[in-house]
Design a protein around this nucleic acid. Structure first.
Lengths: 335, 335
DNA sequence: TAACCGAATGTAAAGTTTTACATTGTAACC
DNA sequence: GGTTACAATGTAAAACTTTACATTCGGTTA
């Protein structure tokens, strides 16, 4: 059922039908009624594809996240979507799995679809594609990580500060053998978290052992492996700062497999909070990001940009340490 | 940058450019090379919107779920998306929040977008809209709940069996005062779970008290409220079967707020498993669904349907009881 | 009554791609 | 050499909507 069909049925021109739907005041009341009745009778819906073609805008925002099952991203996406929908935009979610090839595929898809904007949790690769986006007139926003591109809005948490908060907390408890499961260093957030960790230790004159810095890829399995490596060390750490929830999940899986007790044998503090962190055994001490606010803000910036005007800006949100029970003073006294 | 622009630049017709990209063998090797070079040089991407218009297919599948933050749906969506992408389809995710008005908006959006198919976790309202979909030629699949429509593929878990498993487990432990936090009864899965619960109790000659059946809406807050009501009963239950994870989260939040101990004071078994359930305090006894398999299967059915042929079918998956430590025998002896 | 006005409706173009059909040019064959 | 055949490319229509501009027609004004 198209405008054409309706026009024929009602003996009107397609223009009149179109107008009856989009600018009711431009059409005689009686005509409008007839049109509306027919539309309803046939369950007609304008073809969004064609409208996009004609109006040259898809009113769609692409969001590239690493994994929608990750509670952090799920929450962000929800916030983004609510805000988008409220403004008449649709959100297209793509999983990149922290894999630059998949990210490329996702971006290519969004490019094909001529989205109005992209919220990118970049792997840092694919700069060329992102650049193509900008040239195409799409609005780009970096979220969670900085792609390194110029002239785009950026929404991040203060990663160094978050790591400081976490590390400081461990040091305060008396730990000296503190390790970290860091994220991939090509990501700005992972770098920030590692630097915050290292700086804090140095500030307290604690040597940063190389073996105490394990690198993961922000995904669960890598957390498991990192924990494994740390555990097999001659002198394992008494405390651990994990750079994101997913890896923390992996760490916890390993620790449980091994029967290591938290926090007595190892204190754990992780970046990112989630509903479950609170009810875990033991409840997890975490560095929480204001997820909903950040998601909403991201979309607001994007929409503002779309409406034109405003120059690009960077919003840095403050993380918060939530002390629960996965951290305590070390059993063996510090050397 | 459009075909037109490229054509002008290369002094070819748009048809040739189009062919060079979509059916390389129909074009002279040299020409193809020239085209490819230009395409690459300009970062040209065919306009997906227009292509959809021309080919009359969007290669997009809409998925309507209640909340993407719900671990069950997050996992399902991931599985669906992977399978879709592997087959050249894009997935459009919509949140309905178990709210029929929001579901309507979501379906309307998908209708506008002329999606090729819809995977619907229906609230059961909006049958008319779903019907419009079918008339429009889109393929519909019911997931998790049955909309009641005829002639569509359906993927569900055996809800009665799941509830039986859970309830039987509680009865076996010696519980007689068993309550349930049921889902909204207009949803087929919620009905199945309640019936399985009731039948099992009856089978064991246990009276099903009215006050022991609390109804929630499958969302967290309603779990909290239901727990509250059960807790305030003169004679509270010693065991509880919760009909989904989200409500279980609410129940746990309440139970913790009140300082009630699990499982000593109350045994809890919930529908749906998640990574965290295992590491909670105590680890949660659950009825698990084969989430990934179900998600993948759903998409496979949909794609098969899209390719034509196959009549609609219903796949019922078997749930599995995973006993962890949130259930034990009751402290007070059964009356 | 002629001229004009405005409301209601119609006409047609544009947006970009795909593809059936048409055209061109060249090589092969008799 | 003229016909055939085929490969390469071109032409133009179609997909459906929005919208600038054009037309129609009843009524108002001088």
């Amino acid at each position: 059922m198209t405008l054409h069909d309706l026009a024929k049925e009602l003996n009107l021109s397609i223009a009149t039908i179109s107008r009856a739907l989009s600018r009711p005041e431009d059409v005689a009341p009686l005509t409008r009624q007839r049109v509306l009745a027919a539309v309803h009778r046939h369950g007609y819906t304008p073809n969004g594809t064609t409208r996009s073609l004609r109006t040259q805008q898809t009113r769609t925002i692409g969001v590239v996240v690493s994994d929608i099952r990750n509670a952090f991203f799920a929450a962000v996406v929800k916030a983004i979507e609510d805000e988008a929908r409220a403004n008449g935009y649709t959100v297209l979610i793509c999983n990149a799995d922290e894999d630059s090839a998949k990210e490329e595929a996702a971006l290519q898809l969004l490019l094909d679809r001529k989205v109005s904007g992209v919220i990118n949790c970049s792997t840092g690769a694919n700069l060329d594609l992102l650049h193509t986006f900008q040239k195409s007139g799409a609005v780009l926003v970096d979220f969670d990580r900085e792609s390194g591109l110029k002239n785009l809005d950026t929404v991040v948490v203060d990663n160094r500060r978050g790591a400081e908060l976490a590390t400081e907390h461990l040091v305060d408890l008396g730990h000296r053998d503190i390790a970290t499961v860091a994220g991939p260093q090509h990501l700005s957030n992972a770098r920030g978290r590692l630097i915050g960790f290292q700086d804090t230790l140095r500030k307290h004159n604690i040597q940063v052992k190389k073996s105490f810095v394990q690198y993961g890829n922000f995904r669960q399995e890598s957390g498991y492996q990192a924990a494994q490596k740390l555990h097999s060390l001659r002198q394992p750490p008494t405390a651990l700062f994990v750079a994101n929830v997913e890896m923390a999940a992996g760490v916890i899986a390993f620790v449980r497999d091994k029967g290591v007790t938290i926090p007595q044998e190892i204190s754990i503090v992780s970046f990112d909070d989630s509903f479950w962190a609170r009810y875990m055994d033991p409840p997890l001490t975490v560095v929480a990001q204001p997820v909903e606010t950040m998601g909403k803000c991201t979309m607001e910036l994007l929409l503002a940009r779309l409406r034109g005007g405003k120059p690009a800006q960077t919003k840095v949100f403050m993380p918060e340490l939530i002390v629960r029970r996965s951290t305590c003073s070390p059993a063996r006294s510090p050397r």
